Amino acid sequence: MSDPVAQPANAIDALQQGGVIVYPTEAVFGLGCDPDNQAAVEKLLAIKQRPVEKGLILIADNYGQLLKYVDDAKIPMDKRADIFSQWPGAITWVMPAAKETPKWLTGQFDSIAVRVTNHPTVKALCQQFGKPMVSTSANLTGQPTVMSITHAKSEFADRVDFYVDEPLGGNSQPSVIKDAMTGKVFRG
Results as ranks from 00 to 15, higher is better:
residue 50 R to M: 09
residue 180 A to T: 06
residue 27 A to E: 06
residue 103 K to P: 05
residue 68 K to D: 13
residue 170 G to S: 12
residue 173 Q to G: 03
residue 109 F to S: 13
residue 15 L to G: 08
residue 93 W to H: 01
residue 32 G to W: 00
residue 27 A to L: 01
residue 111 S to Y: 13
residue 9 A to S: 11
residue 147 M to R: 15
residue 33 C to K: 03
residue 41 V to Q: 07
residue 173 Q to D: 14
residue 74 K to D: 07
residue 124 A to T: 15
residue 76 P to W: 02
residue 123 K to W: 07
residue 59 I to S: 13
residue 134 V to W: 06
residue 65 Q to T: 11
residue 65 Q to N: 10
residue 179 D to E: 04
residue 56 L to R: 02
residue 86 Q to H: 08
residue 104 W to F: 13
residue 116 V to M: 04
residue 78 D to P: 03
residue 37 N to L: 01
residue 36 D to V: 02
residue 55 G to H: 12
residue 122 V to T: 15
residue 24 P to A: 10
residue 26 E to R: 00
residue 47 I to S: 04
residue 13 D to N: 06
residue 148 S to Y: 02
residue 60 A to Y: 02
residue 100 E to L: 02
residue 16 Q to G: 07
residue 149 I to D: 05
residue 26 E to C: 05
residue 179 D to H: 05
residue 3 D to I: 07
residue 43 K to S: 08
residue 56 L to D: 09
residue 184 K to C: 10
residue 153 K to A: 05
residue 13 D to P: 01
residue 64 G to A: 08
residue 142 G to F: 13
residue 162 F to P: 08
residue 160 V to A: 07
residue 46 A to Q: 14
residue 11 A to D: 12
residue 59 I to K: 03
residue 143 Q to Y: 15
residue 84 F to L: 10
residue 117 T to P: 07
residue 63 Y to C: 02
residue 185 V to Q: 07
residue 6 A to L: 11
residue 128 Q to R: 10
residue 2 S to T: 14
residue 124 A to F: 03
residue 20 V to F: 12
residue 17 Q to D: 13
residue 29 F to E: 04
residue 50 R to V: 04
residue 21 I to S: 05
residue 54 K to M: 08
residue 100 E to C: 06
residue 40 A to M: 09
residue 120 P to K: 03
residue 47 I to G: 01
residue 157 A to N: 15
residue 5 V to H: 12
residue 53 E to K: 05
residue 118 N to W: 07
residue 50 R to H: 11
residue 119 H to Y: 15
residue 90 A to G: 11
residue 43 K to P: 09
residue 32 G to A: 05
residue 123 K to M: 15
residue 177 I to Y: 10
residue 10 N to F: 10
residue 169 G to Q: 08
residue 26 E to M: 01
residue 48 K to C: 09
residue 31 L to E: 06
residue 89 G to N: 00
residue 174 P to G: 14
residue 71 D to T: 03
residue 186 F to E: 15
